[in-house]
Amino acid sequence: MTTISPQHQTMLDTVPLPAGARIESERIAYEVPGAPADGQLVWNAAAEGPQPAVLVLHDWFGEGEYVRTRAEMLARSGYVAFAADLYGTGVRPDTNEEASGLAHHYYGDLPALRERVRAGYDVLAADLRVDPERIAVIGYCFGGSASIEFARTGAPIAGVVSFHGGLVTHDPADVDALEAPLLVLTGAADPVVPDEAVLAFENELRTKPGLDWQVVSYSETPHAFTQPMIPSFRPKANARSWAAMEGFLAEVLA
């Protein structure tokens, strides 16, 4: 990777580089519906044969240093990772107001959001370094919501992890096609996703018997708790949520 900020370097350093590993990355140009896009693929070039893979979905500020750092952390952990671009090339909001407006555009058009996740998934699944039968999707904030929406399409993914994502419910419940195991990691003091939103989401999942899901709430933890560049960062919840994801991925991508 290129030089990154001290906060993101500290985050990256929590995942040791395995002995003999050669982490490489490449910018990938591809298409989302109606627009060009570009994301970052990261992998361990010393690994042999098709590897399990993780699609990483960004928050409402778009594909940037944060998700690229998360992708390298995943590559160090043994996965091919692709930090996808849900917005399209060059679309990177500068303010919370711009980011909110853009994210809510897609919250208002969930089929379009699902298609944009699918475009990133297709890039990852087609890569020769990837075992297409072992792909998971994770996302942060807006990307957490997007990862769950993609799972609702019945996509052939091994699992989904949402980090402090918005929990969108549907009326009527839209869980019939949902097959992938879900791990939802949320803050117990998140005003964006209050207790009643968590309960409504859980109740929707309960309408499909046999669906494999978990919701983990971290005490006294606000929204966006994994992001070290903002005041809501909570180191303990960040570390615990990453560990929870690692255990989940080890299970579903085995």
Rank of each mutant, 00 (worst) to 15 (best):
L124H: 03
G101Y: 07
A151W: 11
A119D: 01
F225I: 03
V175T: 15
S162Y: 12
G165F: 08
D109S: 13
T207S: 10
V193Y: 10
L113H: 07
G159M: 07
G108K: 07
F233E: 03
P156C: 03
W213V: 08
P181K: 04
E179H: 14
Y140S: 12
V130Y: 03
D109G: 07
A200K: 06
V193G: 05
T226I: 03
L182Y: 11
P222I: 07
M229W: 15
G108R: 09
A224C: 09
L185C: 09
E133W: 00
R206C: 10
H164Y: 14
V160G: 02
F142G: 01
G101F: 09
R152E: 10
A180D: 08
A155W: 09
V161N: 01
A158L: 04
S232H: 08
V192A: 14
S217H: 04
D131Q: 07
P111N: 06
E115V: 01
T153C: 03
P181A: 09
R206P: 00
F163H: 08
L183M: 05
A177S: 12
F225M: 06
R234S: 11
T186S: 15
T207Q: 08
G144I: 05
E149G: 04
R116N: 04
L178I: 05
V161R: 00
G159R: 02
Y140C: 05
L124G: 06
A151R: 06
P191Q: 12
V117Y: 11
A155V: 08
N203C: 01
P181V: 07
T207R: 04
F201S: 08
P222F: 11
A99G: 12
V123W: 03
T226F: 04
Y121E: 05
V193I: 12
R152C: 07
A136M: 03
Y106E: 01
P209C: 12
A188N: 05
D127L: 09
S241H: 06
F233N: 01
E179W: 00
H170S: 08
T226H: 02
